[in-house]
């Protein structure tokens, strides 16, 4: 078991009224799964993904990640945990615009203790693997959307995460580019990486092994 959410609640208070973003979510993810989270806009998909990714907190419930109780961890430990095991892929790619392709991929390694030669080798591998060696010195704005998302995935993979969280990774891409990305995810999953994606598209959801549907912060069976 990779992670487990038990009775997770998350809410915001506005004007004396409590609005629930997540309501009693229970989720167990085993290693090697490929899960798709679906649901209409505002149903809490991204919120759930952020909670899983520890980018966002929650108000009630328990969260265990690889036998660690995330809800009891301090901020710093939590940060160490997700840095070590989780990679993120975003709909809007979220590359750092002031860095080149090479540097974007390299960045997560910079924040770990690693020899410069080792770092170089890892980045070079990654550039090779995604066939973007020729673009390594370009800046994000000089790339097409599909290429940017490739870089985004490469960056997520560089620190060898156990879990990849993807928030509508193909949302800004045309269908052909989208397919390529999804094929890539499929391949990664086969190599043993656990993936949780948020998606609107049935077709993309079909790549996964399990679908979780949300509505108004609640899981519907």
């Amino acid at each position: 078991m990779l992670l487990q959410l038990n009775n997770i609640f998350k809410w915001v208070n506005s004007g004396g009224r409590r609005t629930f973003l997540l309501k009693d979510i229970n989720l167990t993810v085993e290693e090697g799964e490929f899960i798709s989270i679906m649901g209409p806009s505002g149903s809490g998909k991204t919120t759930l993904l952020n909670v899983v990714g520890m980018l966002d907190g929650f108000n009630e419930g328990e969260y265990n990640f690889m036998d660690e109780s995330v809800h009891q961890l301090k901020e710093k430990h939590r940060a160490n945990l997700y840095k070590e095991y989780i990679g993120f892929v975003f709909q809007a790619y979220h590359l750092i615009d002031e860095l080149t392709v090479y540097e974007n991929i390299e960045t997560p390694l910079l924040y770990k203790k690693m020899k410069s030669s080792e770092r170089k080798a890892l980045v070079a591998d990654m550039l090779d693997r995604f066939n973007i060696v020729g673009k390594k010195d370009l800046f994000p704005e000089q790339l097409s959307g599909g290429q940017q998302q490739l870089v985004g995935i490469a960056r997520a993979l560089i620190s060898k995460p156990k879990l990849i969280l993807a928030d509508e990774p193909t949302g800004n891409l045309n269908s052909k580019q989208g397919e390529e990305i999804m094929d890539l995810f499929k391949q990664l999953n086969e190599e043993g990486v656990t993936i949780i994606q948020v998606t609107h598209s049935e077709k993309n959801a079909a790549y996964g092994s399990r679908i979780i549907e949300l509505l108004d912060g609640r899981e519907i069976k």
Partner: peptide, 16 residues
């Protein structure tokens, strides 16, 4: 702002 937030997601500490 965005770049800073991203760097944090990628593992940067505030000190760094």
């Amino acid at each position: 702002n965005r770049n800073t937030g991203l760097r944090k997601i990628l593992g940067a500490s505030r000190k760094k």
